[in-house]
Design a protein around this nucleic acid. Structure first.
Lengths: 164, 164
DNA sequence: TATTGTTATACTCTATAACTATA
DNA sequence: TATAGTTATAGAGTATAACAATA
């Protein structure tokens, strides 16, 4: 057997705690008139991957209608451009505008600065360890949720949501 | 300077990733007819702390109206009992019913089992390390958000939300 | 006056179902 | 028939404002 039940129980509690803390921090950090966190995530994903909207929804782990609404908002704000894919005229190719790139960069820098001040008494090694642990945990949970979903609906094809 | 900007940037991304993953897992795990995650959190907090509702809201990091609504739901489901505090008749003392205790235990066991299967290839040490990292991160962020809020509204008294 | 809790209202984020257009 | 995307509608979770009762 892998992890002892007692340790798993501890870990469940620490995960729930962190989740709650992140929600509190996010709402405390929210600036009036800023983009919502969901739209910020969409912007970031486009910056990193671009491409068709359907792939983006998968990476974000949200349904198509949700993405569609966020894209409509981001386009109306002038952060995103949508072009029909000439090879498949159902699909859209997404790209950031200059304003979108600037917004992504600004949000990023702000978050990095905030985290650095919050972690004022951390040393480099501790932060590096945290990066590894969080990465491993995300991967394990993502793979688990994927397998779980496949088990619940076995006829469905693989590679559902939040694939990496 | 504490953590290098590059490391902080990595950590920001890993935190956002984990947050997204947790949302996906939570929605994939959600059983039809089960309590919402918010109500589950309320139930758990009452199990751990009990006492007046106002303290509970602080620990959960939610506003009083939100807690009030969840308590109304939990009471109607027979999981929670509310009694007026004889020492301060404005306040409520909260306690779980037998059904509430049973529900908390059932949710807990289910989560622990799930996490153990997801972490099938983790060893004990890795899980223990993750517990420590998550705990440290929660504390750092919580303290940071607290300080941040005090700075934004300096006349306000201390000990705002999600105090520990 | 301040605090505890509730009700009314609104905002954010999400999902499912029904639709259009293209493949 | 199947897929990309949109619109309509609903639900979960949250917040602020206005209120009642008590301190």
């Amino acid at each position: 057997m892998p992890v002892e039940p007692e340790t798993a129980r501890e870990l469940v509690h620490r995960i729930v705690d962190l989740q709650r803390t992140l929600r509190c921090v996010a709402s405390a950090e929210r600036r009036q008139g800023e983009l919502g966190v969901a739209s910020q995530g969409v912007l970031r994903m486009i910056a990193e991957h671009g491409g068709p909207a359907v792939d983006l929804a998968g990476r974000l782990g949200v349904s198509a209608p949700v993405l569609s609404r966020h894209l409509a908002e981001l386009e109306s704000l002038g952060h995103v451009e949508r072009h029909r894919d000439p090879d498949d005229r159902r699909a859209q190719l997404l790209a950031l505008t200059a304003s979108g790139r600037e917004t992504v960069a600004r949000i990023e820098e702000h978050r990095v600065e905030r985290l650095r001040t919050y972690l004022a008494d951390w040393d480099e090694q501790r932060a590096a360890d945290a990066v590894v642990v969080l990465d491993q945990l995300s991967h394990a949970l993502r793979a688990g949720a994927r397998g779980n979903r496949a088990a619940a609906a076995p006829t469905e094809k693989e590679e559902p949501l939040a694939a990496r």
